[in-house]
Design a protein around this nucleic acid. Sequence first.
DNA 1: GTCTATAATTCGATAGAC
DNA 2: GTCTATCGAATTATAGAC
Lengths: 183, 183
Amino acid sequence: MRRRSEDTKALILAAARERFAADGYDRATIRAIAADAGIDPSMVMRYFGTKERLFAAAAEFDLELPDLTSVPGDDVGATLVAHFLDRWERDETLVILLRTAVTNEAVAERMRSIFSAQLVPVAAKISGDHAAARKRAALAASQILGMALCRYVLALPSLGTMTRQELVDWLGPVVQRYVASPA
Amino acid sequence: MRRRSEDTKALILAAARERFAADGYDRATIRAIAADAGIDPSMVMRYFGTKERLFAAAAEFDLELPDLTSVPGDDVGATLVAHFLDRWERDETLVILLRTAVTNEAVAERMRSIFSAQLVPVAAKISGDHAAARKRAALAASQILGMALCRYVLALPSLGTMTRQELVDWLGPVVQRYVASPA
DNA sequence: GTCTATAATTCGATAGAC
DNA sequence: GTCTATCGAATTATAGAC
């Protein structure tokens, strides 16, 4: 079958994202991705050069943190948790990054920089505690990533059955305390 | 060099645990483990049969949860957090399991059963909320595993510099609320 | 008990025909 | 733009000499 260049590229990228999300970087093979996309493995190399560059293209990501200035101070934790849940379920990129970061130092570094660049400023602004903003952001990340790990990656059954609202009710106050409790 | 059988086996196991902890199951090769142990790769096969059985031997694990009946009700969260931190730093097995579970369904299942068999009863007993004990245990696991993920695997710098006591102070009340807040 | 040699796969990557 | 064919490297695992 003959296709336009962008179509093939998009097909490959979609298949790559699914495979990387399901298997992580190492176990996701170019051959499997190509098979999913219904094309020849060599096409993947043609369009993306190397497996590493394919991964980079498949793992483009932005936390898209909302503007919290208009959110009432007491609702910051719940708002953040709800946003992350939404972000996680709308976009498999976070699963890709998490599944890969645990055994790939370069991707781990990307996770660190994503959270430090985007979450630290929020903690600094909300808490007014600029000295400890990095610690606060790291604590919030530990709870948010831990929930995602258990719910989406390890698939603990009880976390899977909890509704979004239940999770917001339980985790909201925790994140609230981490990023906004008085210094 | 000539050695006794148990010595060689112990050498292999120690090297395997280090490699599995550092690299996860896939990236840790039998060749590298053998090189670390200063022996020939075929010896590893001789003593353990397959890579999978070597991993099983290297990943034997027990949470060793302390008896909490004598702990004052308000200290349960802090006690649990302190115990897990200690457990994590004394024994690299949890890092091995975490690094591998994210891309290996069999190991993920082991993580689930470890936490469900050992943490759920604690939550049931402490909270008296038997109906929701699984949810409570899962929530506690999400914070505890998330902290371990960020501190020991992703190596967020600010979590690395925090002392054990600081972590207990921050996480203790959170775990306390998860496992012990009134139903 | 230890090692050499090698079989059998699998993977990323390349060259080149059509 | 797509595919066939294949290279070269790495890996688990086995057979057998000493």
